[in-house]
Design a protein around this nucleic acid. Structure first.
Lengths: 99, 99
DNA sequence: CAAATATATCGACTTTTCCCGATATACCAA
DNA sequence: TTGGTATATCGGGAAAAGTCGATATATTTG
């Protein structure tokens, strides 16, 4: 993954917010408490909170995924997204020593 | 400084390259060896290496400066830019623990 | 299989970014 | 003070990103 695409992915308020929300699914997505957060949060929940259209949210999540910050799991008709903490650690190190 | 502006500043190949060049001025800007690198490298040297117009380079440097990654010093008719390492360390920590 | 639901993709329009040339400003030297 | 040199700012055209509504695809359920 190119560094530029990584920084571009982080250059948007809504996307940054999604990443933040996914840090604490239990707190930010209580509607999904019942089904649990094993694989993260499904697109619909994120959309409801983001106040953007379904298509925009879907695209933003895929941008974040391509950049490596989140991973997706399809379960039935739902796609769940959850953070990939390793990507943040890796980026942190790149900035500290390679930028 | 807003996080978004920081990431936007890093979302461009030429700007990333400038930051990299400024890590080793002695190696990347030998033409300026004579006058030293006390305050960094002057705009003209960076422009010559970047292969962009003077106006573009000037703007890019000011974007990087607003984001905190470089600092400028005016000496006579020259403006010198040098890295502000603290900004990289700070960003690294933000990504590690606040993103 | 048909309808319903969740998500992804497509096409279009608006806003932002990229990058340029032209011009303005600051400083130095004769 | 008159050029000459270095940098900054302004205005614009092309490309990319932001965002939407409409449509397509997947999956579940009756």
């Amino acid at each position: 993954m190119d560094h530029i695409e990584i920084f571009k992915a982080l250059s948007n308020k809504s996307r940054l917010q999604m990443l933040e929300w996914l840090k604490e699914p239990e707190i930010n997505f209580p509607e999904q408490l019942a089904s649990g957060f094993e694989h993260g949060v499904c697109v619909g929940q994120i959309q409801a909170k983001a106040g953007l259209t379904q298509s925009t949210v879907s695209e933003y999540l895929s941008i974040l995924q391509r950049a490596g910050f989140i991973e997706s799991t399809r379960v039935g008709q739902w796609t769940y997204y959850k953070r990939n903490e390793a990507a943040f650690t890796a980026l942190s190190k790149i900035i500290e020593s390679n930028l």
